Simulated assay, not measured.
Amino acid sequence: MTTTAENPVVPDLADLQRRAAQRAAERAGGQDRLRGHIVCDGLVRIFKTEGVEVVALQGLDLVIDRGELVAIVGASGSGKSTLLNILSGLDTPTAGIARVADYDLLALSARRRLRYRRHTVGFVWQQTGRNLLPYLTARENVELPMRLARRSGGGRARRRRADELLELVGVGYCADRRPGQLSGGEQQRCAVAVAVANDPEVLFADEPTGELDEATGAEVFAALRTINAELGVTVVVVTHDHAVADQVRRTVAIRDGRTASEVRRTARIGADGSTELVSEEYAVLDRTGRMQLPAPFVAALALRDRVRLDLAPDHVQVRPGDRTPDQNGSDA
């Protein structure tokens, strides 16, 4: 599905993407190391409680390149938060492949997992109260991860970096305030600064705008975009917020523990010089050739049980299994 519409923010989006790719290449030491920053292959997570097994992820495949800003969407229970917890080192997968940077997440010792969480990834929770310590100022909250990681440079260097990060996300004026003196949006932007204090390669955010109104949520997401563009950090956001999902180059939808579809957005210059945002939706084909048809397609054609496939020179036709090709079959 392709749609085009004029959008005055597209030039900014395209520029941010270019800057993010450039910073990511600089961090990686060259363009040849850009691909496959996050790799999931046949990822499985099974939870067992009182003899009952719940399969949260069932063979999920996903590749995210270095420097990308990706939104992951899906209904409650689809597995998106489970995926984020695994990639951030908060949970351990049952089977499959999960790799972030140079870390194999299925084979981490406790010591390497701690190092991974301190230095390689940052995390922002949905609940503002989980991101900041209430008895520390915003600056002290940003300095704390650096102190725990024993970053070199001393207190003056930590203070300078904390102030720089708070300015970068637009809350430099909050440096001496405690969380109780900040709005929800200010707290979340401070949380973004805390998450990147140790210069991680990847930033994960779980519904970072979920408790905020639309305008405040836009400010928080702008902070994530700035971090992505200015620092070259790969950013992965789990969200229900369509306003957020529509502002990234790539949105990945998860359904029933597998990647189901992707929307990719590109900025194109029209014949009259105007900039258009072009969105294209794709079904995701896994390594065994399986894919999930979008739910609206299934409903529109009343598909169930089995479907009829016909191979054409440049496409595949999908028809309800109880119809013959001459019964007005439709492409899907």
Rank of each mutant, 00 (worst) to 15 (best):
N7E: 13
S261E: 10
D15H: 07
V142T: 08
A267H: 04
G129N: 06
A299K: 12
Q181G: 04
A300S: 09
L90H: 03
A222V: 05
D246Y: 08
D326Q: 10
A205P: 04
D65M: 07
R115L: 02
G273S: 09
E50M: 05
V55H: 12
I269K: 00
L301Y: 11
S88F: 00
A215F: 08
R268H: 06
L84A: 04
V192I: 11
A197G: 01
G51D: 01
R27F: 01
S279D: 13
R323P: 00
G29P: 10
Q181E: 15
V192D: 12
A149I: 02
A95K: 01
V124K: 06
A138R: 14
A223G: 07
L136V: 02
F297Y: 14
L182K: 09
V252H: 04
V238P: 07
L105G: 05
A95W: 04
G154P: 11
A98P: 03
I97S: 10
G217C: 10
R161L: 06
N7H: 13
G321A: 08
A300L: 09
V169Q: 11
V233W: 14
R151F: 06
R19H: 10
G36Y: 06
H119I: 01
L144N: 09
P8H: 08
A245N: 11
T234I: 01
H240R: 13
T92D: 15
D305S: 10
D286G: 01
G79A: 00
T266Y: 03
L203A: 07
R268V: 04
G129M: 13
E281V: 13
L311K: 12
F297C: 03
G270L: 12
L132Q: 02
